[in-house]
């Protein structure tokens, strides 16, 4: 099915001109190579196989329990695949530590927000920015020049990102005191602070109203325009159709479809999966 994707076109739903100008280069960034992942008897991922190309926005969709989050967890090093392997920028990431994978340029957000609740919004982002800092404990203890320089850079970056996601006003508030929507944005900013090549968003619009969703859509496009490749898990079909270049569909741990949004939308297996036709003749 992947072969049908020759020339990804702009999603037909109205989007800003920015999305049109982006030509997707066919350079593989992330290769999920026949990955199977079992939890005891549960096969959470079953021979899942797809490639993410540099510069695109790929949607990962599927009904509840399809294995989308598990796929993220395997990519970011939380779980090791039982079979198959995952390559990022041409390198095997199986067996690498989580923080090493982050340093290679992969960042993520969480379906259930996982900020550092007692730290301020600014500090949360600074933690992300520290990913590439080299200040040693000794250097920090005596406030040596490297510490000062990196501290200044990290602060600047954090302020810029707070502004980028639109929550500058909450800079010094503890993350737990931010509104739900602000927390979601803060998670994105924190992930961006690690300077990712690939940003993985796990249902970033969950619980948003249409206006907030539209804002988020704009944000995702702006992130892509900065040269970051985006992998997006999302339940809302309209949102996915509106922003992604390509879509991979999972059901019960298996990939059931892959292609342009328009194609995927017409795919009878996808329709069946979302409407529950096979198990349910009443429909």
């Amino acid at each position: 099915m992947g072969e049908t994707v020759q020339k990804p076109t702009v999603p037909e739903q109205a989007g800003p001109p920015a999305a049109e100008s982006t030509a997707v280069t066919r350079e593989p960034l992330l290769e999920v190579d026949h990955v199977t992942l079992r939890f005891g008897g549960v096969v959470a991922l079953n021979d899942v196989n797809f490639t993410l190309y540099k510069g695109e926005i790929l949607g990962l969709i599927g009904p509840n329990g399809a294995g989308k989050t598990t796929c993220f967890n395997a990519m970011t090093g939380i779980y090791q695949p039982s079979e198959g392997e995952i390559r990022f920028r041409g390198e095997r990431i199986t067996g690498k530590k989580k923080h090493q994978i982050t340093k290679m340029g992969m960042a993520r957000t969480f379906q259930n927000i996982r900020l550092f609740p007692e730290m301020t919004a600014l500090e949360n982002i600074q933690v992300g920015a520290d990913a590439h800092h080299k200040t040693s404990v000794i250097s920090a203890l005596f406030r040596l020049p490297r510490h000062r320089r990196e501290e200044r850079d990290g602060l600047e970056k954090a302020e810029r990102l707070l502004d980028f996601v639109g929550i500058s006003g909450r800079m010094h508030d503890a993350a737990r005191n931010l509104s739900y929507g602000e927390q979601r944005r803060l998670e994105i900013a924190r992930a961006l602070a690690t300077d990712p090549v690939l940003l993985c968003l796990d249902e970033p619009a969950a619980g948003f109203n249409p206006a907030e969703k539209e804002e988020l859509l704009q944000l995702i496009r702006r992130i892509r325009d900065q040269g970051v490749t985006v992998l997006l898990i999302e339940h809302d079909m309209r949102l996915v159709m509106g922003v992604t270049d390509r879509i991979v569909v999972l059901e019960f741990g298996k990939k059931i479809a892959e292609g342009l949004p328009a194609e995927v939308r017409e795919d009878h297996r996808v329709i069946a999966a979302y409407l529950g036709v096979p198990d349910d003749d009443v429909a």
Binding site: K98, R114, L115, P117, A131, A140, E151, G154
Partner: peptide, 26 residues
């Protein structure tokens, strides 16, 4: 000095959510 540096932030991040901290590069 440590507390107000990368080191202190890493410590607090670990305390608050160790896995998230590691996934953010700590």
């Amino acid at each position: 000095n440590l507390n107000r540096s990368r080191v202190g932030r890493a410590w607090i991040a670990i305390r608050e959510d160790e896995d998230a901290a590691q996934l953010m590069g700590v």
